[in-house]
Nucleic acid binder design. Sequence first.
DNA 1: ATGAAAGCGCTAACAC
DNA 2: GTGTTAGCGCTTTCAT
Lengths: 362, 362
Amino acid sequence: MSIHEVARRARVSIATVSRTINGVPTVTPQLSRRVWKVVKELGYYPNTQARALVSGRSRIFGLIVSEITNPFFPEIVQGFEDIAVQHNYEILTTSTVHDPKRMALSVRRMIERRVEGVAIVTFGMEEELFDDLKSRQVPLVFIDVGPSLPRMSNIRIDYLQGIRQAVQHLAALRHEQIAFISGPLTLKTAVARERAFLQAMEEVGLRVDSKYEIEGHHTMEGGIEALKQLLNLPKPPTAVLCSNDMTAIGVMRQAYEEGIRVPDDISVIGFDDIRLAQFITPPLTTVKMSQTEIARLAFHALLAEVQRKSPAPDGSEYVLRTSLVLRDSTAMAPKFSLQHRRATNRKRVKAAIDEIASGRSD
Amino acid sequence: MSIHEVARRARVSIATVSRTINGVPTVTPQLSRRVWKVVKELGYYPNTQARALVSGRSRIFGLIVSEITNPFFPEIVQGFEDIAVQHNYEILTTSTVHDPKRMALSVRRMIERRVEGVAIVTFGMEEELFDDLKSRQVPLVFIDVGPSLPRMSNIRIDYLQGIRQAVQHLAALRHEQIAFISGPLTLKTAVARERAFLQAMEEVGLRVDSKYEIEGHHTMEGGIEALKQLLNLPKPPTAVLCSNDMTAIGVMRQAYEEGIRVPDDISVIGFDDIRLAQFITPPLTTVKMSQTEIARLAFHALLAEVQRKSPAPDGSEYVLRTSLVLRDSTAMAPKFSLQHRRATNRKRVKAAIDEIASGRSD
DNA sequence: ATGAAAGCGCTAACAC
DNA sequence: GTGTTAGCGCTTTCAT
């Protein structure tokens, strides 16, 4: 069932059907009604492929993420879809699972389907993988790591803003030994977060012991390992700022394992504000980098670029603000050293619990 | 840059280019080499839209999920993409966010893009939403809830298998008061899980107090509420089986709030085995329903249907097995009643902790 | 084995 | 205001 069938049944030309469907105002109301009637009856939907072929516009945007199973991404995918739908765009999502081959394949799939633009939301990448896209003048939008070139947009994240709030919050709670667990320092974004932390610490007049700077992996396992290291220090920190939420979750998990209470014994702050952050126990205080907002900005950057007649020579820049979200994983710095209590806490809590568990009741 | 450009530069006809690219064996090696050379030089990728238009095959499958931000789905989306890529299929993912309008829109988007088949992986739905797809003979695959009609496949989940293992496991641990927190009973799948539980309990000769059957929402909040209710019972259960993992996570969260230890005071078992289940504290014992396997079965069901010349009159059926995954949220039933200890546990643990926190050290 | 040409379903320029 | 027609980039007969 094609436009011809509709035209035949409505006794008009295919051009009139096309005009009607596309809302060209010159169509007589009477004919328009006749056409719409047939369209409804037949359940006719135009073939997007044919449309794209002739118009040269696919109405598809690509979205490349690192891995959809990482809790950071689904919100972005959802946000992107939400807006795309409103604008009648389809979205081609690909997940690279950190594999350059998959990434290259993603790019190829995008080109074959003739996407009008691509949002690249990945942790780290090899820029040359996008050469194909660039040479085809496909608009691209990057988060934080892209070049300033025509047809490219960048969403810059203002890390300092939120991290400064986090550090000031900890300082106000009298924390002085504040550790930072970074992401892999091969990632620009991880470096930027750490730099923001250092600057914020300096601003509040706190010095950072280099022993308190640990390189993590932006994973739960990384957080677990990092806290172990930190607790082995002669003077463990009273607060830990993490480069992302998964790391913070690992820290909290390990704290639990070691019988150290969050936030009483140690305060923990994350970064990203993934949805999971509200669900863990205790709910995580974290720096919010709105995933929905990232999706919105990325989509509009692409849309703006597609609609622009001549590209800006240096591309476009957008800025995303970050801000602290207070929940329950932070508290006043403990009066006595964590180290002191750590040795005894676990044993004692266990003993107390065992006593209770033995069944003796009031 | 089109096939014509390639043809011109290789000094052959567009037909030869087409044949070369599609591996039609009649092409002379010499010409083939010439064509490939130009293709590489130009970075030519065929236009999929044009291909689809003429061949009538879009090489796109649709995937409709309830909401990508629900931790259950990302693994399915990833699994589906992984296989699709291997078969040179593109995938159009849509997330209905539980909105029938969005669902209807999803269907429309699928049809407009001329997908060759659609996998519908949603909790509950209104079947008539798919009438458009059905009338167009688009192959459909459902999880557990679809009709037996031509061009439709169903992946039946063998709930009993895994749930029986779970119940037997609890019985072996001497649990007798076992509660079940179901999903919303408007969902067929939720009802099926509860039914499996009831049957398994009967098999091991345990009776189910109707007070122990709580209807949840397949959400963390549902689990929290359900455990509260359960704990208000004169004789709270010693074990809780949940209809999905998010519910189990809510239960564990509430247990923590109330100072009740998992698994020492209460055993908890989930269902689904979402990735998160390994990450919480303690790691959750749960019934695995492999999301990757669901994706794989769904994709192959669609592929088989597309390749089949004449559809089977009653569609196809596939079965997914489920099985218990032992982790740390289950243990022997406590000797003394939970109720007994519950009244004092929290108070006492708190007191013990406070004593320690006051800084008194060995 | 290769090329010429028809046509997939649609939009847009051009006639009337 | 409406119809006719020329492609969009490709695959696939049908000749040769």
